[in-house]
Write a protein that binds this DNA or RNA. Structure first.
Length: 493
RNA sequence: CGGGGUGUAGCGCAGUCCGGUUAGCGCAUCUGUUUUGGGAACAGAGGGUCCCAGGUUCGAAUCCUGGUACCCCGACCA
């Protein structure tokens, strides 16, 4: 059928299918031929690159420097921290040999059994162990502290079931690892980096997030505290979008990172780690997109403005080209990324649909009518509203419109989220409502048993103890025991 | 690891039950002409180890045996 490449499954019909189609059709990524892995296509990668650039600057403003540590981790490193290995052991890829050889029939290769490694190497699922093994050599005195490193890299977690951007066997991320002389300093750093993530999500991605701290069961393996930002997708499910961990002295002790403090006493270094991944791409897609495709925030869109000419014959095309060229130069001088698509192998209607699918925030159209009237048609992606405006001063108009779109999609996402946050004190009511998505603020007695019961009954989990709401004491809706505060409960990705 | 399903052109599929001309359709691709204010039309062309191995048969995409890969639903997870 000709419909095959047209249109998109409606969001409301099948959210998962819609998401998958969107990722593929908008040219962001596709399933790789390798199990559970993903190919990020140039358009998708351009968005990721822009995210990286902004985040990197934000990190550097807090004193963090980039570094790089090895991909392969000796197996013994992972066993140093008991909780940590328990958390990751089930999903590690293991390197056992270092050589191949041709098989007996000379039509393929086999693993050379002679080339077995004495100690297996683990493809990093996260780098705490190898980094703290290195920090042992870097840190001897309080004068060596703090150490503030970040690395941009790939990691591998052998997940059973994968989804483009949200969960893939290999993913790209940044992981920051800091070492400090005091508990207070490390805790402050963990909170500070969460704040950076929240700022980034809200100001650049236009994704509103709930900041909070994880319950013990949801904590990172080996952490004393895990701070998180949780975003709400359009199906009402939560997406954990970034985490920052206060690791205490667990890794300092496991890797024997000791330093001499001001008083000449030996102490173990205090640690934090924090990361965001290409999962943020999933958050971006699922927060703003609609039935026509992607909606990108202007702050991260690789193409902010697309210009499409409509013409009859070569003469008219040339007239439009001449009219548009100075505008392109103006946009470039203003730092606005613009694409002029005058390719003649696609018709205007196709281009309109295609750039909408790809989420380009603003589209300008110039045709014969506009040439005559000195006007241009402006379409904004977030509302799909069209307007014909004067060509004179269009660059300022567009710049204001980009700002307006950035604000508008954030407001839209925030209004949606706030409309789906419920306070709930009745477990039966909760069980009914939570199926349809949304964030639930409920009293919790603080026990893992209650948490497990909620998960078993509803598949929903405690996302965090949120910071942003005023807290009062109350009664746990499941156990009836006293509760110090409300926690955020939701079904999640 | 438990339950279900699928492997046929770049992609999506029909054909398999009931074996039989040269394996077919849509999309995409290429060529040509006309088109261009919301996903163009017509004409023509190219493209296949029918997942792999073995078996049954005059004859296998189709039946049998074994293998393998991937997808979906659970458990796990950023």
């Amino acid at each position: 059928m000709a419909i095959e490449l047209k249109g998109l499954t409606k969001r409301s019909e099948d959210y998962s299918k819609w998401y998958n189609e969107l990722v593929v059709k908008a040219d962001l990524a596709e399933q790789a031929d390798v199990r559970g892995c993903m190919v990020i296509k140039p358009y998708g990668y351009a968005i990721w690159e822009k995210m990286q650039r902004v985040l990197d600057d934000m990190f550097k403003e807090t004193g963090v420097q980039n570094a790089y540590f090895p991909l392969l981790i000796p197996k013994s490193f992972l066993s140093r921290e008991a909780e940590h290995v328990e958390g990751f052991a089930k999903e590690c890829a293991v390197v056992t040999h270092y050589r191949l050889k041709t098989n007996e029939t000379h039509d393929g290769v086999i693993v050379d059994p002679e080339a077995k490694l004495e100690e297996e190497l683990i493809v990093r699922p996260t780098s705490e162990t190898i980094i703290w093994n290195t920090y042992k050599n870097w840190i001897h005195s309080y004068r060596d502290l703090p150490v503030l490193c970040n690395q941009w890299c790939n990691v591998m977690r052998w997940e059973m079931r994968t989804r483009l951007f949200l969960r893939t066997s290999e993913f790209l991320w940044q992981e920051g690892h800091t070492a400090h002389a005091t508990r207070e300093e490390a805790e402050a750093r963990a909170k500070q980096m969460l704040k950076v993530y929240a700022d980034f999500a809200e100001r650049y991605m236009a994704v509103p997030v709930v900041q909070g701290v994880k319950s013990e069961t949801e904590r990172f393996a080996g952490a004393l505290d895990t701070y998180t930002i949780e975003a709400m997708m359009q199906d009402g499910k939560a997406l954990q979008s970034g985490t920052s961990h206060f690791l205490g002295q667990n890794f300092g002790k496991a890797f024997d990172v000791q330093f001499t403090d001001k008083d000449g006493k030996l102490d173990y270094a205090w640690a934090t780690s924090w990361g965001v991944s290409t999962r943020l791409m999933g958050a971006l897609i699922m927060t703003h997109s609609d039935d026509n495709g992607l909606v990108l925030p202007p702050a991260l869109a690789p193409i902010q403005v697309v210009i499409v000419p409509i013409y009859k014959g070569a003469d008219q095309l040339e007239a439009i080209n001449n009219k548009i060229q100075p505008l392109i130069d103006k946009f470039k001088a203003m730092g606005i990324s613009v694409k002029y698509d005058n390719a003649d192998n696609k018709r205007p209607g196709f281009k309109f649909a295609d750039y909408e699918l790809k989420g380009v925030p603003v589209r300008l159209v110039m045709g014969g009518r506009d040439l005559e009237n000195n006007t241009v048609e402006v379409m904004r992606r977030d509302t799909l509203e069209k307007e014909t405006v004067s060509f004179d001063g269009i660059e300022t108009y567009v710049q204001n419109l980009l700002d307006e779109i950035q604000k508008n999609i954030f407001k839209k996402a925030k209004d949606f989220r706030d409309a789906h946050i419920y306070e709930c004190d009745d477990y039966e009511e909760f069980k009914q409502k939570v199926k349809n998505g949304g964030f639930f603020l409920c009293h919790w007695d603080g026990t893992a048993e209650t948490e497990a019961k909620i998960k078993a009954d509803t598949q929903a989990t405690i996302r965090c103890v949120p910071y942003m709401f005023e807290q009062t004491e109350g009664v746990d809706m499941v156990s009836g025991k006293p509760s110090k505060c409300r926690v955020l409960i939701a079904r999640s990705y």
